[in-house]
Design a protein around this nucleic acid. Structure first.
Lengths: 117, 117
DNA sequence: AAATATACCGATAATTTTTTCGGTATCCGA
DNA sequence: TCGGATACCGAAAAAATTATCGGTATATTT
């Protein structure tokens, strides 16, 4: 069975928040879900670098933490949707701030580390 | 020699910002440095859960990325200080937002995952 | 002398995260 | 019947992160 390796970090507010987002794909997933629920296959289309299995696992943890909610439709072929929750949505300002920071400082890091530069 | 495993992620603004903070201690270090430069030994005192060697490595990467600046004093026993840079300081609003979010939602997660609940 | 404190580094171990691969089950269409 | 699409899962490999241990060097204190 899949089991979470390390639990949400309750030791300080900063680490708590970090432990919820701190992964390669979670913040991207939340960002993608902001405009409405998506199916796993749709998420894979917009985040092609993330393997389907990876999205599975991260969606499962996001759901465990209450940041997204899963809806299963009793259809065949199977269909399910993941929607951002109110709690998840309350993280979007932070994600927006990170996006804005990244846009403002992109050039700096491209010059520093980029291959095209 | 120490070598960075994966480079700063330039593929999108969100991932860029994430790749700079996304670690167990970096955001804590930036938070601690906000009120002035600190020596490695001082940082270890305020973040006792982080082993000195770990702080070393994270400070080195933070310095590589331009988020902190190192000053070496030619003294014996050796002394050095790490100060947050302007670029690093521009991340503090994001870190503040994460701290605030963590404070607002702490109880929720303590009830959900906490041992004392 | 010996212990302490400082900063730092290399090698390696331990842990965690991410990825890959193959398999379940079902229905639809060719 | 066969291949495609859907969602999901387990095992295991690969990769990355974090941690531990011991060592360098030098001055001061005991």
């Amino acid at each position: 069975m899949y089991e979470r390796k390390i639990p949400v970090d309750l030791s300080c507010p900063l680490r708590l928040t970090m432990s919820l987002i701190n992964s390669k794909w979670k913040s991207c997933i939340l960002d993608e879900l902001r405009n409405g629920p998506m199916r796993p296959s749709e998420l894979h289309k917009v985040l092609p670098e993330a393997a389907p299995r990876v999205l599975d696992l991260q969606l499962k943890e996001l759901a465990e933490d209450g940041l997204v909610a899963k809806t299963i439709f009793a259809e065949l072929p199977p269909r399910s949707e993941y929607a951002i929750t109110g709690l998840g949505r309350s993280l979007l300002p932070i994600i927006d701030a990170m996006i804005a920071w990244g846009e403002e400082n992109r050039l700096l890091f491209e010059r520093k580390f980029g291959t095209t530069g």
